[in-house]
């Protein structure tokens, strides 16, 4: 049945699982299922018997005595009456009997009913499993009868051709992920830039004002705290521009937080600009002093610095201020 193909083999399901074998298996499962059904039936009978007994036991003490026919031997009965209608000898099992009242007997019987119920439940669960199994075997049998085939391809053959496509797929995936990352970055950068622009304008305004306005020291400290993250980023960024070696040490500690900080800073930044105006100007002044020589940093010309090529992460931290295309360029360089 097995036909050798260019890549792998085609085996008919019938040769793997002969239809009559599968049918036999399903038959066997069905047999056990029937057995379980019988058991379940018996259990259900027990349950109903138990309920009847509970009923009877509850009814008996309603009267002082009952007239009954007493069984005597196999076939004989004689009339008699039940007295002591509230006294029962209950068989607990293992030939142990106990004197109980009607109420106590009912309790015992109810407990017994619970155990029976749990047995019923478990048997039902087992039956469900068996049914699933049987249907599976049936399906296999019919599939085999229909002449379904199993196609198997050798792994080794796959290896050469498949790995390539795999790799392609992987890179495609990665590209997609990067694209998504970039677009997110883009958004954040836009926000950042807006905030920054606002800042810079304001800080320049503030510069002028600050000459006149003296702000209290702790207010400034507070503002500094707020600004700390942002400024650190700025600094690291500018240091990048300055010297690769220095940046390396600084970046090492900065790189990872930078990307995380980004979304956070943009928030507080926006909200705090108004309040931190004066102190920003103060700090910014200093930074501006530093940055003036390398002011191109903000224009986006830094892209081609030597350190840029060495790692994606660094690129990310840099790019927090850059346009998206840079990432893509880096990706391409890679």
């Amino acid at each position: 049945m097995a036909k050798a193909e260019k890549k792998g083999t085609v085996t008919s399901l019938a040769s793997l699982f002969p239809p009559d074998e599968a049918r036999k298996a399903s038959q066997r499962v069905l047999d056990t299922l029937v057995e379980h059904e019988r058991e379940l039936h018996q259990l259900n009978q027990f349950v109903s018997d138990n309920n009847n007994v509970i009923d009877l036991v509850q009814r008996l003490p309603e009267q002082l005595h009952h007239d009954i026919m007493v069984p005597f031997g196999k076939a004989a009965f004689f009339p008699g009456r039940i007295i002591h209608t509230n006294e029962f000898k209950v068989l607990l099992g293992e030939n142990y009997y106990v004197d109980r009242t009607s109420k106590q007997t009912t309790e015992i019987l109810k407990r017994r009913g619970n155990t029976l119920q749990s047995q019923v439940d478990s048997i039902k669960a087992v039956m469900q499993d068996l049914k699933a199994e049987a249907s599976f075997f049936d399906a296999t049998a019919s599939e085999a009868a229909e002449g379904l085939v199993e196609i198997r391809e050798d792994y080794i053959e796959e290896a050469s051709s498949e790995t390539v496509s795999h790799a392609d797929m992987k890179t495609a995936d990665e590209d997609e992920e990067y694209a998504r990352l970039f677009s997110r970055m883009d958004e954040l950068e836009k926000e950042e830039l807006e905030a920054e622009n606002g800042d810079e304008c304001e800080s320049e305004d503030g510069d002028v004002k600050d000459l006149g306005n003296q702000v209290s020291l702790d207010n400034r400290v507070k503002n500094l705290e707020v600004l700390f993250n942002f400024l650190e980023q700025d600094l690291s960024y500018q240091l990048n521009e300055r010297s690769t070696s220095f940046m390396c040490s600084h970046e090492a500690s900065k790189v990872q937080p930078a990307s995380k900080v980004l979304p956070r800073t943009s928030g507080p930044h926006n909200t705090h600009t108004a309040m931190s105006k004066p102190s920003i100007s103060d700090k910014e002044q200093r930074i501006q002093l530093q940055t003036t020589p390398t002011n191109e940093a903000f224009t986006g010309s830094i892209v081609e610095h030597t350190h840029n090529t060495d790692s994606n992460l660094r690129g990310q931290s840099n790019s927090s201020k850059k346009t998206v295309s840079r990432f893509k360029m880096q990706r391409m360089q890679h």
């Binding site: 000898k89 607990l92 009997y97 106990v98 004197d99 407990r111 017994r112």
Partner: peptide, 27 residues
């Protein structure tokens, strides 16, 4: 299982309950 049930019931009995064992034809 049966013995465990019996034990459970016996544990639930009061101290003064009458317990019998059926040995042959007699309790």
């Amino acid at each position: 299982g049966e013995n465990e049930l019996v034990l459970k019931e016996l544990d639930l009995l009061q101290e003064d309950a009458n317990v019998y064992k059926l040995i042959g034809p007699v309790l």
